[in-house]
Amino acid sequence: MSAALFIEQVFNGLQFGVMLFLMSAGLTLIFGVMGLINLAHGALYMVGAFAAAAVSAATGSFLLALMGALAASAVAGVLVEVIVIRRLYARDHLDQVLATFALILIFSEGTRWVFGSFPLYLDVPAALAGPVMLPFGIAYPAYRLAIIGIGLVVAAALFFLIAGTRVGMRIRAGESDREMIGALGVNISALYTGVFALGAALAGFAGALVGAIQSVQVGMGEPVLILAFVTIVIGGIGSIRGAFVGALLVGLTDTLGRVLLPILFSAVMEPSAAATVGGALASMAIYILMALVLLFKPTGLYGGAA
Rank of each mutant, 00 (worst) to 15 (best):
L292G: 01
V75G: 03
Q15L: 11
L14S: 03
Q217I: 14
S266P: 01
I171F: 02
A275I: 03
G174V: 02
L294Y: 00
Y45L: 08
V186W: 01
D254M: 10
A197Q: 02
W113P: 02
A139D: 03
V84T: 12
L295V: 06
A203D: 06
A57C: 04
Q15K: 13
G235C: 06
L98V: 15
T28E: 01
F296K: 14
N187V: 14
M290S: 00
G246R: 04
V250S: 03
F31I: 09
M67Y: 11
S56Y: 09
Y140F: 15
I148V: 13
V218H: 05
A282Y: 07
A206E: 01
G48L: 08
I181Q: 00
I148A: 03
V55L: 07
A126E: 11
G194T: 08
T276L: 06
L301I: 12
G199N: 08
E81I: 11
T28R: 01
T111Q: 09
S56M: 13
S108H: 10
R241L: 15
L256P: 00
I147Y: 06
A155P: 03
F159C: 10
M46D: 02
R170H: 12
L88G: 02
T100Y: 08
I162D: 03
G257C: 02
S56A: 15
V186N: 02
A173N: 06
L248D: 00
F101L: 15
V245S: 06
L29A: 04
R172N: 05
T28D: 01
Q15V: 12
F115R: 09
L289G: 05
V18F: 08
E81T: 12
F107M: 09
V277N: 05
I106W: 05
V277Q: 07
V97H: 07
L256H: 05
G164K: 15
E81D: 15
A247I: 13
R172Y: 07
A146P: 01
D95F: 11
F229T: 06
V216P: 00
L145T: 05
Y143C: 05
M67G: 13
G251Q: 00
G17N: 10
A3I: 13
G304Y: 04
F160H: 15
Y302H: 07
F118S: 12
S189I: 14
G35D: 11
G242T: 04
G211L: 04
V82H: 10
V78H: 12
A274G: 05
L105R: 08
G182F: 02
I104L: 14
L256E: 04
W113Y: 14
A305D: 08
E222G: 03
A275P: 03
M269D: 07
L301C: 09
E175Q: 13
G194Y: 06
V78T: 10
G204W: 01
I37L: 14
V75F: 11
G35P: 03
F16E: 01
Y192M: 14
F31S: 09
V78M: 14
Q96D: 05
G151C: 10
V268T: 15
K297R: 14
V84S: 10
I138N: 01
I226V: 12
